[in-house]
Nucleic acid binder design. Sequence first.
DNA 1: GGCAGCATAGTTAACGTTTTCTACACGGAG
DNA 2: CTCCGTGTAGAAAACGTTAACTATGCTGCC
Lengths: 352, 352
Amino acid sequence: MAGVSLGSRPTVKDVAAAAGVSATTVSRVLAGNYPVSASTRKRVLRAVQDLDYVINAQARALVGGTTRTVAFIIRDLVGPLFAYIGQGVEQQATAEGRVCLVCTHHGDADRELELIELMREQQAEAVVLVGGGLRTPEHLERMAQIARSLERVGSRLVLCGRPPIGPDVPATVVEYDNEGGAFAVTNYLLSLGHRRIAFIGAAEPEHTTTSARFDGFTRAHAAHGLTVDPSLVAGGTFDRESGYRQTKALLTRDTGMTAVVGITDIVASGVLAALHEAGLRVPEDISVAGYDDIPMSADLNPPLTTVHIPHEELGRSAVRLALHRDDYAQDQHLMLGTHVVIRKSTAPPRER
Amino acid sequence: MAGVSLGSRPTVKDVAAAAGVSATTVSRVLAGNYPVSASTRKRVLRAVQDLDYVINAQARALVGGTTRTVAFIIRDLVGPLFAYIGQGVEQQATAEGRVCLVCTHHGDADRELELIELMREQQAEAVVLVGGGLRTPEHLERMAQIARSLERVGSRLVLCGRPPIGPDVPATVVEYDNEGGAFAVTNYLLSLGHRRIAFIGAAEPEHTTTSARFDGFTRAHAAHGLTVDPSLVAGGTFDRESGYRQTKALLTRDTGMTAVVGITDIVASGVLAALHEAGLRVPEDISVAGYDDIPMSADLNPPLTTVHIPHEELGRSAVRLALHRDDYAQDQHLMLGTHVVIRKSTAPPRER
DNA sequence: GGCAGCATAGTTAACGTTTTCTACACGGAG
DNA sequence: CTCCGTGTAGAAAACGTTAACTATGCTGCC
């Protein structure tokens, strides 16, 4: 490692000078896309090593037109949903030779816009938005605008776990079957014999995740010739505390419920806590199901019956589709399946 | 939004032409670092809006010399340790106006090297390495070389949760008191009256995390005038399965143990599972403690006594120190405190 | 022996910014 | 009336790389 000078980064020119060749030749040796004589190549590689040279990604992107960067915008880094989707995105990005930018907006819509703008500056090849969103006309219109904005600079908007924006909006969409999963798990409870099933966490009808899951819940009832009793439907948010509080509230009334579906596993864990506190046994006295199949679900007491989402596959597909949109031109909308995972928190209802 | 053409990204020149000024003037309006008449400014801003122009971050970095990017290299995105440290890194990076690159190496040392090389190309201002590492001479030498390599291109190596490499190695180090935490939790168990305490997960004596925690365990015994019984020390890895298996193995022998310290909370959750399976009650029959205070610990059955690590603060400090190393020139080594969190998995031992 | 054709290397311009230097006009002071 | 400072604007060079040309020296063929 002789000749390494501290302070300023060596450039192609420095390498060229050290090897006694031109900058072009250095570039060619490194890219390997042009014939170079063995002896020259050797000298260049030697100089690269001596100077500890690495290419300047910015300069390369400037001339090459592509940054080999995928951006990943999400609400929060904590929370179990992120990890696996993020892992999928990162893995696929890496597999495709891209690096991965990650940003969080903590639920702040303005901040999300800022981030997208930032990614437009960064020329990210794909901008992956994770998680459900609102479905109001204004929000949809704004998303459509963003999609077009990104397209204009060569980026691709990718929606991960959220339904498409509109037919003529340039975006890649990878979602999973929210409604089907809710249908399946509710159907399972109904098949066990439950007839009074509570649904916890349906406050925002405009939120795509909320509404789809509630729709599945409703459809399963319909399929059994039943209608949902509104007094068994509780609102709330997506956290454990909410599940806990809503359950407490339901227990004070004499609802006759024999099962509870939490809108997420996190909510369901709050449900379990409230039931335990009330001295009810799960599943002997009451069954509980969740949604998401986060790792923790298997460790709850009892292990939670829930709906599995292919988190990682979601992230991988998102990146894969977006980067190969020439090949997959037809089909920039993917719907992944979900399935029920039966554990110990569900059982037939007690005899009356 | 008139005049927006699809396909190719507008440049300063386009904006300049649209506004009837020079590129220089556009740059000045956007940067706001030079007097520009009000009318010109207005025209330029108007053109920027019309063309939906955003700056090209690569080009700016090329001339400006700085990318405003922080890189974040970690073993895995899944696993509870990542989330909070990552959140800290991301938050601080955002607060300092930087964007955040994230890469995983899945424990592959060569891959880690590749990633660092990649970040050198990207000119990340700081390269944060998270998690413990080996402490062999070769590994240390390699890290030292990497640190100098990064320094040469203007990047800063940041070690997060790992002790310093050496005195004259240009790196920022933010660690937490692994040994002290292990001392404290062991001391707590000893104070409760336990005398036969098992330690699970100490297989790699060269791994910094492993050795520091085991050292604390040993020192606590010494402080009580005791020595550690080697038959109570089990090796293994950092996963749940390992805790489960090692505990099973210990239970087959008649060790007389009354408490178990898991090297991580994950390991401890495996310990709990094995104990439950053996029909032992926690903490009545045997006490269990973990390390890390991951969120799940509070939801285990019973809630786990453990050692709290300031995860998020770790990440924040790492970025803060690295980006302001002129101001903090003195002190590029920070040691954060840990403390015991007492929950329900520990109690005095039963009377014999 | 001259010349086509190939293998190898170099020159130059371009990518989209910012920065430094230069230019121009205007107003006031001497 | 000239000269200088000030406020505003533009021209040109630079950042580090690549790609499109251009140039050179061979080899081999007629």
